[in-house]
């Protein structure tokens, strides 16, 4: 089936108790695109997904269209979307094969076609030996694969994944993240992936929608969001950000650790924001900034230093230098001025 484009317009959600879960949202998701909804719990990302799925209706005035066709009044069972739930929602009364074939059974496909399609999916997810197992005999990772296979079996127009990896341990999460990524690229299906894990979002998303308290904080490619965060909220949520307070003056930005050569500093800037990878150790005598080492963690290939300057939160700097670092030692720092942001 051709991938579908999805458009939300003025989709808000107010729960019966008056809680505003989602401010009216406009969003376009291209056909075949993988869109990640990212944010902490309670930010409205799952609500948005459920509105797209048809499990929640948007508030009056909101609409959801698939390829330009208004599907707002349709319940989920009429939308032909595949959904993977955080708890998997596999049917305990059915075997693995029956679970995967359920959507086809509902669509009254002939038995041979169902068997063949189920076989294909079992193969694709590499769980063929599990076909006749009961659900309670599966591990978490196996359940996840069954849930994915089941959601894909009836060739849905879009695949919706609600925190599909959250229930798994870190190692398995990495493996499955790669698998899901490969799967989505290969199938070219329109996919919406909800997560609170920014690493997952960066790895999987063509675009990421960062949400905060029911509002869009930023929408853009992983690179955009990482390199040009639109707000402090986004900057702090995605990756690690260093922050240094000070005042702009001629030739730079005056901080407790020295004059940061940030010529482009806006007049009103009171804080400079930059990534650890744009920060480097430099000779203490000639470096523009200096601070003292608060903590040092040897990571093997590099050392992560926490350098404290004035009263700011210690800056994170990573270095490949092979020497030992002492706590309290004074080090010089330099920052790539073109990468400094005022947020």
């Amino acid at each position: 089936m051709q991938p579908v484009s999805i458009r939300l317009s003025r989709c808000g959600k107010t729960f019966p108790d008056g809680t505003r879960a989602l401010e009216p949202l406009d969003l376009d998701i291209g056909a075949g695109e993988t869109m990640v909804f990212l944010g902490p719990s309670g930010c409205g990302k799952t609500t948005t997904l459920r509105i797209i799925a048809g499990l929640e209706a948007p508030d009056e005035g909101g609409s959801v269209t698939f390829d330009g066709v208004d599907v707002t009044p349709l319940p989920i069972e009429k939308r032909n979307v595949g959904m993977v739930f955080q708890s998997y929602a596999l049917f305990p009364n059915m075997s693995v094969a029956e679970n995967i074939g359920y959507g086809l059974r509902i669509r009254k496909r002939p038995a041979t076609a169902i068997r063949q399609r189920v076989g294909e999916l079992l193969e694709m997810m590499r769980i063929s030996p599990l076909a006749d197992r009961r659900i309670d005999q599966l591990s978490g990772g196996q359940r996840q694969r069954v849930a994915l296979a089941r959601a894909l079996a009836a060739e849905p127009r879009a695949l919706l994944l609600d925190e599909p990896l959250t229930a798994l341990d870190a190692k398995l999460r990495d493996v499955l993240r790669l698998e899901i990524d490969g799967l989505l690229r290969r199938l070219g299906i329109t996919a919406i992936y909800v997560t609170h894990d920014q690493a997952e979002a960066m790895a999987l998303g063509d675009r990421i929608l960062v949400m905060d308290h029911g509002k869009v904080a930023q929408i853009g490619s992983p690179r955009d969001i990482y390199q040009r965060p639109a707000s402090r909220y986004v900057a702090e949520f995605i990756g690690t950000m260093n922050r240094l307070s000070g005042q702009p003056e001629s030739g730079g930005f005056r901080t407790a650790g020295g004059l940061l050569p940030w010529a482009a500093a806006p007049h009103a800037a009171r804080e400079a924001w930059f990534r650890p990878e744009d920060t480097a150790l430099a000779d203490a005598a000639s470096a523009p900034l200096s601070g003292s080492i608060d903590a040092a963690f040897f990571l093997g290939d590099r050392t992560r230093l926490f350098v404290s300057i004035g009263n700011d939160k210690p800056l994170v700097v990573e270095t490949a230098e092979r020497r030992e670092f002492r706590i309290g030692e004074t080090v010089g720092l330099q920052v790539d001025a073109s990468r400094i942001l005022a947020l």
């Binding site: 799925a53 499990l55 319940p75 989920i76 069972e77 032909n80 979307v81 595949g82 959904m83 739930f85 708890s87 998997y88 929602a89 596999l90 049917f91 305990p92 009364n93 359920y102 959507g103 509902i106 669509r107 089941r150 959601a151 009836a154 919706l160």
Partner: peptide
């Protein structure tokens, strides 16, 4: 987890009667 099981079945195209007979009753 009745709610999620039913939502799962609905996402696969099952209407109320099908969800009730295939998922709710057997479970």
């Amino acid at each position: 987890d009745l709610k999620t099981l039913e939502e799962g079945a609905a996402s696969l195209g099952a209407g109320f009667i099908q969800r009730f007979t295939h998922i709710v009753l057997p479970n």
